[in-house]
Design a protein around this nucleic acid. Sequence first.
DNA 1: AACTTATGACACCTTCTGGTGTCATATTAA
DNA 2: TTAATATGACACCAGAAGGTGTCATAAGTT
Lengths: 109, 109
Amino acid sequence: MASSGFRHDVFEAIADPTRRKILHLLAEREMSIAAITECFSLSRTAVNKHLQFLSDAGLVISQKAGRETRYQLQPEPLVELKLWLAFFEHYWDEKLSALKKFIESDQND
Amino acid sequence: MASSGFRHDVFEAIADPTRRKILHLLAEREMSIAAITECFSLSRTAVNKHLQFLSDAGLVISQKAGRETRYQLQPEPLVELKLWLAFFEHYWDEKLSALKKFIESDQND
DNA sequence: AACTTATGACACCTTCTGGTGTCATATTAA
DNA sequence: TTAATATGACACCAGAAGGTGTCATAAGTT
């Protein structure tokens, strides 16, 4: 599956608002660590740690380009989140359909 | 919107596997703290803390029933997660990635 | 009344998080 | 060559997370 060998999973990765913002930035375009850091009022070290965390979760990949390290979004692990949510959507559907049936039968009477 | 006044948000709440399991349990049926605790090899105190955390995030509500405190799932805050994911699904759509196909085939099953 | 059950409220402990700063090194620019 | 840039690798720190246990109390049971 997607979560083998990683110290951190997707659920932990997206728990932090800074990391969520980084993912949004990387969705737009690939960026260097310095460029990402400029979007926050945080030290480069802090941003780097978040990038390591995201990399651990498989949500980003890094690639050296000269003296820069460019980061890129890797959205695949979000599927796990999607599937997890799907379970509860199913739960909602059941509750809603029960309500819908009740309303419909009420209208039919 | 949904996240005003809460110390913890949905993203933090679902970051822990124990809390995710609790949500799954409560999706099936409303349960007392003791009943939930029996499903884990954890102390009641630990489980209670997780329930407080989930309550803080608005994902569960408690209700006294005699000497028991029964907990119930409150799935509405998960909508925030759904919307967040939707952003990346849109991104995937634009990129026409293979991931989109995977998700769609999963939904069709 | 005496006992058991279900919780709430604490105090305490260890590890992880999220942040800082400094120093060394590789790469590009002057 | 020298200077500036971009990053990696540490050490360090305060506070939160996730766990434990104990004690007090409210609510059923016998």
